[in-house]
């Protein structure tokens, strides 16, 4: 990002402030949503969706992942893959158990 001129940095700053607004709104939304009268699984789903959107905004714009080089994208995709392995394979051992 070394050859960015002043104009494009100021463009960036506008994006940062927009993202900031979106994050604040989403934070309030997720808190309000938690008071909705819906089932637990729906509430979990909703909260995780909002968190994922917020997370993507931070990673994409603050961390510039949206315009990042291929090497880094590859490393992160691999990490995400193993993250899901770590999350879900152990869970199978709860549902899939020999009962004596």
């Amino acid at each position: 990002m070394s050859d960015h001129d002043t104009v494009s940095i100021q463009e960036h700053i506008r994006v940062y402030l927009t993202v900031f607004g979106a994050l604040a709104v989403l934070t309030v939304t997720t808190v309000l949503a938690s008071y909705l009268d819906i089932s637990t699984s729906e509430a979990i789903f909703l909260a995780l969706v909002i968190a994922s959107v917020k997370g993507s905004l931070v990673a994409g714009y603050f961390m510039h992942l949206i315009s990042e080089k291929a090497t880094i994208t590859w490393i992160l995709m691999m990490t995400a893959l193993f993250f899901f392995v770590l999350m879900f394979l152990p869970l199978m051992s709860i549902t899939d158990q020999v009962n004596i």
């Binding site: 193993f82 392995v85 051992s93 899939d96």
Partner: peptide, 17 residues
Amino acid sequence: FIVWAHHMFLTGMGQVM
């Protein structure tokens, strides 16, 4: 990364696992 539970066959995990 996806073979680790072969250390755990005796922990009572089911057939799918």
